[in-house]
Design a protein around this nucleic acid. Structure first.
Lengths: 343, 343
DNA sequence: AGCAAAATGATAGACGTCAATCATTTGTTC
DNA sequence: GAACAAATGATTGACGTCTATCATTTTGCT
C-alpha cells in the first residue's frame, strides 16, 4: 500500500489537485465546503505532506544561526565542537548553520553579533546570551518570522519561542541532596562560591541549594557566598581565605573558575571537604579522577545543541516540535566519566 | 552562492551528467581518469548529494523495525510510548517504523518475532533481546543488507552493527561511589539484589560495584546477592529475610522488582538503609519523593530510542553515523525528578 | 436574466536525483 | 585500419510538492 500523495487526497475529495493544494497551503479563495472535503480526505487517508519533496520544490534550505560566547569557557567550546562536527551531516539534509561568536559577558558584542544577523533571511536562531538590546532585536526578528531558541539560560518570553537548558534551581537542590547524603547525619559547614549573584543561573542554583539544606539538613551550616567573577585567581585567594576561617566539610561552586578551586582543594590540610562543581572541563575531569573533586554537575552541551537544532528544524518546517524529554544534568563522579575525550 | 548540484560537478569535471552519476553511484564502466576528475570536482565544490531528493527519486522510504519485550516492564513501556509519539513526526520524513513485541525472557517468542521480520525488506532493525537463534537470524539479515542495532544490552558483534545502551559496569561502579559517599567514612554493610546473575547487565553492574567497593571502601561489607528473578514477591520475602539477618546500612538492587523492595524498605525499623535502585518507574518515583529510596539510576529509554532511530536513519542512507556522545545513565535523587509524567 | 466576483479545474515547469536507454566516441588488438 | 569492447554523452521520465497561469464553471446579487 503506497503512502498517499496529495493527488490521492484530491481524488478522494473529488476536487482538483489545485484546490487540494489551495487548502493545504492556505492560499485562500476556496469554498468552505471544499475545505471540509479536503480535510476529510486528508484525515481518512492519513495523508502527511512529504516535507523533503516540499522543501526541494521550494528550493528551500533551512538557514540557522547559533550565537555563542567565544570559546572562552570550555562549556561553549564543547558546543562549538559539537556543532562543527554535525555540520556536514546537516548540509546533506539542506540545513545550513552559521556560528557567530561574541565576547562573553559583553552586551555590546552580543548586540553587534545579533544585528549582523538581521535581514539575512535566517529561519531560526539559537542564542546563549543576555542583554536589553539583544532582547529588543530578537523580539523584532521573531515578529518578522524568525524562530528563536534561548540556550543555557532563559531570556524574556517575548524574545524567544523556546528554551533549551536545565532547570538551575533543580540543579542546586540536587547538589544539596548529595552534600546532605555525604554527611551521613553528621554536622558540617558548606562553603559556597559563585561567579556573580547577578547571573540568574548562579542565583538559581544557590537558591535551590539553600532551600533543600534548610529543610532537610538543618545541622549543616552554610557560609556566605564567595564571589569570584568566574576567575580562577579570585577563586583561589578568596576560597583559601574562607577555608582558613571556617572548618569546611563541603565546598560547592555554582560558577566557573574551577581551576583555582581545584588547586586549593588539592593542597588543603586535614580531612578533604566534599567538593561539588559545575561543568566537566578537562581540569575538572582530572580532579575527579584523582579524588580532589567528588561530584561534577554537567549540562551536556552536546545534547543541548542537538536539541536546539532538532527543535528549530521541525518548527521551521511548520511541523510540531519533536518530543523532548526534560534535560537532566548529568551527575559525574569518578566512576562514570565519559570515555569521549573532551576538550 | 547556490549549493552545487551534480550538474555543477559534472560541468566542472568536464564530463557529462551521466558519467558523474556513474561515478557517484558506483555503477562501473568508468575510466580511472574520469573517476578522478569527478572526485576532484566534488571535493573542490564541496558537493554533497541531497539525500532528500535522492530518496524522493528512488521512491525510497526508510523502513525500520523495533523488536521489544512486551510492555511488562515499565522501562520498555517508556520506549513504546516514546516511539509511538515520534511516529507521525517521522512519517513526514519518509520513515516508517514497525514495533514488534515479544514475551520478555522468552527466547522462542523473540525468535518468532524476528523471523516474522525476515524478507520483509526492512532497512534497519533495533533489537532488545537475546538468544542463540536470534543471533543466527540477525546475522543472516545483516549479511542480506539490513542494519542491526542492539538496544539496552549488547549482543554478539557478528549479529549487530551498533550498540546503544549504557555501560553497566560503569553504572555499578557509580553506585558504589555513591554508597561509599553516603557512609562518610563509617563502616557499614550492603545488601545486594539482582534478577538473575545470568543476565549480563545485572552481572556487570554487580561486578562494577564490587570492584570499587573493594578498592575504595574496604570498611563496608557486602552480603551475598539475593536473586529475585525480577519478581516483586520474591524480592519482598528474600529481602526481608536478609534484613533480619544482618544490620544493613545500604541496599542496592541491580534488577527489577522494586515494588517489593520499596514495601520492605518502607516498613523497616531502625535507621533506614541507603537505598539505590535502577530505572525510574512510577512506584520508584514515589518512593524517591517520600524518601524511601535515595537514588535511582535510569537509562533514559527515551534517549536510547531516539539515538537508535537517528543512527539507523543515517546509516541506511549511507551517511556517516551522527556523532553520539556516550550515554550517561541519569542519577535521580528526590530533587531532580523530571516533570514529565512517566507511566 | 445578466453580470461580476468567487471558486475551481487543468496544466506545466521547476527542484535535485535516480535509473534507464540508445547513440556515439574512444581505446585496444591484431 | 578493421573489428570489437569499453567508455562516454545525451536525453528522458519518474518522485511529490510548490507556484503560477489561464480557462472555465459556479455563486451571489440586482
Amino acid at each position: 500500500m503506497r503512502t498517499p500523495t496529495l493527488h490521492d487526497v484530491a481524488h478522494l475529495a473529488g476536487v482538483s489537485y489545485a484546490t487540494a493544494d489551495r487548502v493545504l497551503n492556505r492560499r485562500g479563495n476556496v469554498a468552505e465546503k471544499s475545505v471540509r472535503k479536503v480535510e476529510d480526505a486528508v484525515h481518512q487517508l492519513g495523508y502527511v505532506r512529504d516535507i523533503a519533496a516540499a522543501n526541494l520544490s521550494r528550493k528551500r534550505r533551512q538557514r540557522l544561526a547559533f550565537v555563542l560566547p567565544r570559546r572562552s569557557h570550555p562549556f561553549f567550546g564543547r558546543m562549538h565542537e559539537q556543532l562543527t562536527r554535525a555540520l556536514p551531516h546537516l548540509r546533506t539534509a539542506r540545513v545550513e548553520i552559521d556560528i557567530v561568536d561574541f565576547e562573553a559577558f559583553d552586551a555590546a558584542s552580543l548586540e553587534a553579533a545579533i544585528s549582523g544577523l538581521a535581514d539575512r533571511g535566517y529561519h531560526g536562531i539559537a542564542v546563549a546570551g543576555h542583554g536589553r538590546a539583544a532582547t529588543q532585536m530578537l523580539k523584532a526578528m521573531r515578529e518578522a518570522g524568525t524562530r528563536i531558541v534561548s540556550l543555557v539560560s532563559d531570556r524574556p518570553e517575548e524574545s524567544r519561542d523556546h528554551y533549551i537548558g536545565i532547570d538551575n534551581v533543580k540543579a542546586g537542590r540536587t547538589v544539596a541532596r548529595l552534600v546532605g547524603m555525604a554527611h551521613a547525619g553528621q554536622t558540617g559547614r558548606v562553603v559556597l562560591a559563585a561567579g556573580s549573584m547577578g547571573a540568574s543561573d548562579h542565583a538559581d542554583r544557590i537558591a535551590g541549594f539553600r532551600d533543600v539544606m534548610a529543610r532537610d539538613f538543618p545541622s549543616i551550616a552554610i557560609s556566605d557566598v564567595i564571589e569570584t567573577r568566574d576567575r580562577s585567581d579570585l577563586m583561589h585567594t578568596r576560597l583559601r581565605e574562607a577555608l582558613t576561617e571556617v572548618d569546611a566539610t563541603a565546598i560547592y561552586n555554582v560558577g566557573a573558575g574551577n581551576e583555582g578551586l581545584i588547586e586549593v582543594a588539592r593542597t588543603a590540610e586535614g580531612r578533604r571537604p566534599f567538593t561539588v562543581v559545575h561543568e566537566l572541563s578537562a581540569p575538572c575531569r582530572e580532579a575527579l579522577e584523582e579524588g580532589t573533586v567528588d561530584v561534577a554537575i554537567d549540562q551536556r552541551p552536546e545534547i543541548e545543541t542537538s536539541r536546539a537544532i532538532a527543535w528549530l528544524r521541525a518548527v521551521v518546517d511548520d511541523l510540531p516540535p519533536p518530543p523532548a524529554p526534560e534535560l537532566i544534568p548529568a551527575i559525574y563522579v569518578r566512576d562514570n566519566l565519559p570515555d569521549d575525550s573532551l576538550l
